[in-house]
Design a protein around this nucleic acid. Structure first.
Lengths: 205, 205, 205, 205
DNA sequence: AATGAATGAGAATTCATTCAT
DNA sequence: TATGAATGAATTCTCATTCAT
């Protein structure tokens, strides 16, 4: 096929690449696989991306952008901590169910060693300050206990969210979740309710 | 297993392999490096292990065995939930600081692979039931609130421990921890205290 | 040849191709570069030339044609050997300075290829017989010594001219010239004078 | 074959590489060809050389070392210019006849563009100063005319030697020599004698 | 039995050539 | 007809695995 790639095909490359990178990690992922699966030639990938690294970076940015957008939309305009938490939890679960490969990519970078710092800064900074502010505000309004460091709280909270992402997006963690509680977490409502209860207890003054 | 290498040499192979796999990931880790660093020839590694995958698997099992042992020893014979928690947190931090490569191996298995499920069962089952039982007991003794599902609580708790492991053992998570709270978590006491406070709040009736 | 491109465009392709081939060699020269620089599409180059090889061949022929024309014009109608020599030397220097890429093409053909012989016949025959005749005539007029074979003399003379071409047209030889005599050869007059003195000594009876 | 390469095999790689580089130039030469022709695997070449560039460099150094050694030996201890010249001419012819691929390599680099300067300096410097000194000495002894610049003379002389190398080592130049004088130059004695006569005329005072 | 050099399949990347528009 | 994006063969280089010594 020698006609210009449609937007669908370009998107396909990105999706297949995210799947491949998510499944095999940045090293083992093979450009030729991605090409085959997206129904294009190897060459075309190099027309759109300088090299494997660049494709990986774009996949990463794409995944993280979407993930962050969804999470941000969940809290934006929400000034009540508990409502924010609930929305975040729900966003987290539905996003991960829907976009497992994105979560797998996310997991894959967290295993990267070389550029870990670079990636962590790019990915976590915004979320971190959002959560810290949210908690600090609630703390000033006496909704959150004073004996906890807001930064640590925010991290513990995000730790739980991250694990929630993995639990719905990555095979290992999904299986692990089954080991802990069978299919109970399949119910988004139940999972949300329980996690909210846990968090309220942890944070409330 | 043939019996020509001393136990020390076999251990050396395993340790160096875990370091190499931890540092470079299963793909980039080079058998020749492992051989060189453990002072044996490449050939001898292939006498003991069918292939790279088999060596990786053994490293995995070894890492998990040690990790689980340390965590189990931390709680064994401890029937007070809070003391158990504190011991687990401290064990988690010091183990991860000391044996980062083991944690990196652990993280590596959780990356999605076809056999993720198989590994999850082998690794998480014991811990899961230990934590669940611990919490159920405390619940019956009214130390833990009734509105929370013990299985979910146990999982949330283990989620936090797992993230703690990664935060001290994996580059990405370490950087992420810095983003959240600078070097505050360097102090094991402070980290433990804060996490205990968080957990007590979450679980106490 | 199809007739849609203007003569200017065809010339542009040729010139840009010669530059590109001269600069990067036949292997590294990129058709897409040549197309871009001559303001046509890649496709159109393939309308005019079967493949890269054919374009290279045409460039070669074109370069040689121009080079031979210039050298021929320098001697045509000149029946005095020494005046002819001087004109050839000056033509050689100014042409090479002006059209370095053509000289690089010339050098490229002389690189061993299967069809080297074919090219040599096409390129060198006319020059050879011109120089031989010129020398033979001067010899009969007692201007050139009798103990030298006119054919060999002609070749030695052309050897010097060829090296002069390269010295002004090819990077390596330019650098080599600097090693021998700094920037002295930058002066066309000085170079001509010295080479004339050398030749007169060599040939004069 | 899994046994360590013999010296012969290592030499074979070098010879085959020189042939391949000489025939096709550094770009088009294929490592896989060199491997096949020397009867080793591709991998072994990369065991001995970091990359294609390194192999090329080694071939170059090897060729140039041998060429320079032969040429140096020809003049060493010879303080009479004319005897030195004759020896150089003879060395030049017999070396080029014997080691055509080395000469082809030499020709190949002179077509290189990127590192032309680096190569020229490495290859030509010693020869240049040797020839210049030889001529200057003869000049002081009144054997060489005063009106010629020794540096330029040396270059003209080396120009003739270089062309002699090419004429016996490279297809194109060999054919060109035939065009000029048939098979006359096949006789080393005749070629030497004629060139000596040419040079004596050019240089003698 | 241990060694470690050789093997060669496999992955990234390039770019001459084609052909749908 | 001209365009220039897509194709895919070819090349460099790596490293898990083998096996002669």
């Amino acid at each position: 096929m020698l006609k210009k790639l449609t937007q669908e095909q370009q998107d396909a490359i990105l999706e297949r690449a995210i799947e491949e990178f998510g499944k095999n990690g940045p090293e083992r992922a093979a450009i030729s696989q991605i090409a085959r699966r997206s129904g294009v030639s190897v060459g075309v990938i190099y027309k759109y991306y300088d090299n494997k690294e660049a494709l990986f970076d774009h996949c990463l940015k794409h995944s993280i952008k979407l993930l962050t957008r969804v999470m941000n939309e969940a809290v934006s305009g929400e000034d009540d901590l508990w409502r924010a938490c609930e929305k975040l939890i729900r966003a987290c679960i539905s996003f991960s169910k829907e976009h497992a490969p994105y979560i797998q990519m996310y997991h894959a970078i967290t295993g990267s060693r070389e550029d870990a710092g670079k990636y962590a800064a790019a990915i976590e900074s915004v979320t971190a300050s959002t959560y810290i502010q949210l908690i600090e505000k609630a703390r000033q309004e006496k909704a959150v206990r004073k004996d906890l460091d807001p930064a640590l709280c925010a991290m513990f909270f995000d730790n739980l969210l991250m694990m929630l992402h993995f639990s719905y997006g990555c095979e290992y963690y999904r299986e692990r979740m089954n080991i802990y509680c069978g299919r109970q977490m399949d119910s988004e409502d139940y999972a949300t309710e329980q996690m909210m209860a846990f968090l309220r207890g942890a944070l409330s003054s």
